[in-house]
Design a binder for these strands. Structure first.
Lengths: 187, 187
DNA sequence: AATTTCAGCAAACAGTTGTTTACTCAATGG
DNA sequence: CCATTGAGTAAACAACTGTTTGCTGAAATT
């Protein structure tokens, strides 16, 4: 799996060959079948690995409490740190979310759906969501998750200077959403 | 190019072979080189074709005038129509925006950057943006463009029922952003 | 101590890949 | 009307592809 992840730095999953993977891993082609039935099988395993770490991150970002402004700064910092430490995983998820291999795409969608549900529950517990309908809470949760994934995807291919621009913009955008939530009239 | 676009329904660009393309197009392998130096070359050409039509769409969506609520309904309808009529193009852009082929990725990024700039100018001209700093306007433009691309990407792989959910959520999200803009304090 | 499972290997299979070369033939243009 | 160009072809090249088969040796289990 590490070998595959390393190769995926420069190509997308649907162009990955198993001979290529085994060569990178330093084993013979036949050895592959001892671990995975398929290349798609490997892909799904990678999805789980990649989104497990991201799952911890999401939970950590929502555990914090304080002023909205501080929460936003903290969340963006957590995302940037995560990308630096798991660049290959982030790139993989960003690239294959709409990629060419159906099982991988579906595994990512299912995992992100779980995230969204978790975020929705966290949002519903916040005072600002008092009186909100479920559909409205859900809609904000999707906005947050999509924004997080997109920000991570952008960061993953950014140099130091671009990273500062992206995080600055992300903070502003989260503030805008926050303002929108405070003045929202649910119905 | 039509042949390639058709093949890209089930795979991503970096796994496309030129023999595959020429076979689908009904010509001999060598014929490919009469039109493109490279497969990457074909990819860049596809980007331009795909985003040209999208460009018209963006301009059409911003030409309209009226109440914010009506504007949002109109914009979402325009996007949904566009996806129905250019499904292959939309899928291509969504898939390759973070895909494995650098020249294609960069061409998409450059084209989306032009969109964002155009949207930013349109936003700056709206009354609600009076007194806003350039960075804040720009930030909203990026939010809109990203939201549009992501919505289109989601619609492109949705059935009729899912399409209704996606458009309903997208409208809500645009309303939230709209509320945020009205109550924003720029500085 | 004997046996079973695990993770690896080399070799072989028929197909497919990108690219080059030398060629045709119709359309275009002065 | 002749020359040039554009867009196509077939054939050949070595290199690479996914998968199967039968084999090995170590580790784990009984």
């Amino acid at each position: 799996m590490d070998a595959a992840l390393h190769l995926l730095e420069h190509q997308s999953f649907s162009s990955l060959g198993m001979r290529e993977v085994t060569r990178e891993a330093g084993m013979s082609p036949a050895g592959f079948y001892r671990h995975f039935r398929d290349l798609a099988d490997l892909g799904v395993a990678l999805v789980e690995e990649a989104l497990a770490s991201l799952h911890e991150m999401v939970r950590a970002a929502f555990k914090e409490q304080g002023e909205p402004e501080e929460l936003i700064d903290h969340a963006v910092r957590v995302i940037a740190d995560h990308v630096r430490e798991h660049r290959a995983h982030v790139r993989f998820v960003a690239r294959e979310r709409f990629g060419g291999v159906a099982p991988v795409r579906e595994a990512i969608a299912a995992e992100l759906e779980r995230f969204t549900e978790e975020v929705a529950q966290a949002l519903a517990a916040q005072p600002v969501s008092a009186g909100w309908g479920a559909a409205d809470v859900r809609m904000v949760a999707e906005l947050y998750v999509d924004h997080m994934v997109l920000t991570a995807a952008a960061l993953q291919q950014a140099d130091a200077e671009t990273e500062r621009q992206i995080t600055a913009t992300a903070r502003r955008q989260l503030r805008l959403i926050s303002v929108g939530r405070r003045h929202w009239v649910s119905g």
